[in-house]
Design a protein around this nucleic acid. Structure first.
Lengths: 342, 342
DNA sequence: ACTTAGCACTCTAAATTATAGAGTGCTAAA
DNA sequence: TTTAGCACTCTATAATTTAGAGTGCTAAGT
């Protein structure tokens, strides 16, 4: 595409992102001095519409970028906006607080994203599929009740209460703990198949007949670990400041999407491969967000992708800035997690 | 108040709850055959307005109950609506699933409330103030990292990762665990004052000089336990089906209230004393919900109040049914928790 | 002393009409 | 190829009309 068309397209997109109003030829001529008259710009605009990059809400309105237009902008036109030093410092500082748990760190990252982008932010993970079991511990909490704690390599801690026969001593529980650890440590959750569990069960049941039902439950529980992923959502309210959500029905359909954990997971879970994913408007499969874009980026521990954070906002968003924030946050998030449980 | 006035007031409130439209004298005369003419009803309505129980949106509209009107209805007029057997069975069945953790049970209760009342539902707790420490466990998860697990009498499980000097053996950690348990078991969280922690610290530091910083962090962490309460929120979307939320600004101010954990906690944390609390319209302090009512009920373990569940909806809600659901859910919730960790 | 029919009056919500303004596309001249 | 000029289109806003629901008051009925 020739230089002038690109410049005009860019001007229209930037103006629309800034104002939210359809952009007319006069506006472009006035605000961005491209050295041509409105009439010329009108001709170019007609071409750009032909190419599918612009749209007209109605005959006598200005132009609005189409999904394709944004796509072209993001892929070819946009320049990455560097964050200012103070913004970087701020982001870094938010991860330097004492955040004891992996989930707290992720929650904080999500909050931070929502705050800085003024969009809705989502944090997903950490994925447990490729994680392996680090530790299994079983101990009494009161007569007749025990707690199982499982720690995975991705830093997830899961616990579960069990009833145990009153006769079981702490000593015996510790033996079971050791045995479980011996057999389970290092096993990747995805590969935790019933056959392995059955082996353990057989071995255990011989020695600890009284613990039968406990063990069944316990092993069942373990095999479910893989599927559990936490979801954090922040900044929903930010979206409703945007003029595109003046309509209550749009708000409703958006809220119903944001309210379903499954849907969010599908929208935001992109990794691996590592890096940034951008879905603009209709590129998303859900109807309710056909006027929204979803940006996600992966985060990792020791080079392995273990989750996503991302934002959702109107297609008319400041992609350049949002992407910078997203990447910088993800980078700091990864580093914080490595500090925590690498 | 004389019988006819009460009947008219009740008719107006019931009609308004059902339709959402201001109620006129003709409507009452037609739908509820009280054996008097619209003119008579008009006179009574004027009286009821004088008493502050009714309001007129404008001169030529029908009447709408005021906060005071609802209050009178709830306190004096309303009959408790029994839930049907199948509804009761349904609620009970939802608590009979395998719900391994106290927080899962609470989350389920909140979802159930939202679903059955068609309002926004909130689950709070379990409160940790009066809970005591049941178990403290400290163990390695990988070289140089340890996990602390604390279990309270209210069934809360908290965990926290620590860096430990590489030289520390599992054996040593177990000794520390035992010592911590010995000193902390049975201590009520509210009474976990710095002085106790300092004692422990002094005792530990003599034997385990290398663990200094770990211990500091650990004790600090313990003292924060009291304040942590989980909040569950479900069914926000339900509210926006109500005609009173056609206006986007109302939606926004409501969402901003529902989005703040602190505010929710303040609104819904009522107990003890045990039982039901009803706040109607302006009786709530927050402006944004001046057209909403908040109903909460306490739940307990072994007779001790440990949390609240509740709903928030427009003042124009079906109080009778909502209250029945709320109480039945709370009762089942208490029972489920007792089964789980009583 | 209540109750009620009748009626003038008020107010709103919805429908209708008028108005202003922004923006376009086309034509013809530079 | 660019641009000024102009007729035309479309929408959003405001202004106006209309219909209907509901009230309060009065005066007559029980």
């Amino acid at each position: 595409m020739e230089g002038r068309k690109r410049k005009i397209l860019e001007a229209i997109i930037l103006d629309y992102i800034a104002t939210g109003e359809p952009v007319g030829s006069r506006t472009i001529a006035r605000r961005y001095n491209l050295g041509v008259s409105p009439a010329t710009i009108r001709n170019e605009m007609a071409d750009l519409e032909e190419l599918g990059l612009l749209e007209q809400p109605h005959t006598s309105a200005g132009r609005v970028p189409s999904d394709l237009g944004y796509r072209y902008y993001v892929d070819c036109l946009m320049e990455r906006q560097e964050l200012s030093q103070s913004e970087k410092d701020y982001i870094r500082s938010r991860f330097e607080q004492k955040l004891g748990e992996i989930e707290q760190v992720l929650a904080e990252a999500t909050r931070l994203l929502a705050e800085m982008t003024n969009l809705a932010a989502v944090g997903l993970g950490p994925y447990q599929g490729r994680a392996y079991i680090r530790q299994v511990q079983l101990f009494h909490v009161s007569p007749g009740r025990a707690l199982l704690v499982v720690v995975t390599s991705n830093g997830l801690v899961e616990h579960h209460f069990f009833s145990v026969p009153c006769g079981i001593s702490q000593f015996e529980l510790e033996r079971v703990s050791r045995l479980l650890n011996h057999r389970l440590q290092g096993i990747i959750l995805e590969e935790l198949k019933p056959s392995i569990l059955n082996d353990i069960y057989r071995e255990l049941v011989a020695e600890h007949r009284e613990l039968c039902s406990l063990l069944m439950e316990l092993l069942e529980r373990l095999s479910k670990l893989e599927k559990e992923e936490k979801i954090f959502l922040e900044g929903t309210l930010n979206l409703f400041e945007q003029p595109e959500f003046r309509d209550i029905n749009k708000v409703k359909s958006l809220l119903s999407i944001l309210g379903q954990a499954d849907t969010l997971r599908e929208l935001f879970a992109q990794g691996p491969p590592a890096g940034l994913t951008i879905k603009i408007g209709r590129e998303n499969k859900y109807q309710g967000i056909s006027k929204c874009s979803v940006l996600t980026v992966t985060y990792e521990i020791n080079g392995e992708v273990i989750g996503n954070v991302g934002v959702l906002g109107p297609t008319r968003m400041d992609y350049s800035r949002t992407i910078s924030i997203l990447e910088y946050v993800a980078q700091n998030l990864s580093r914080a997690l490595e500090r925590l449980c690498g």
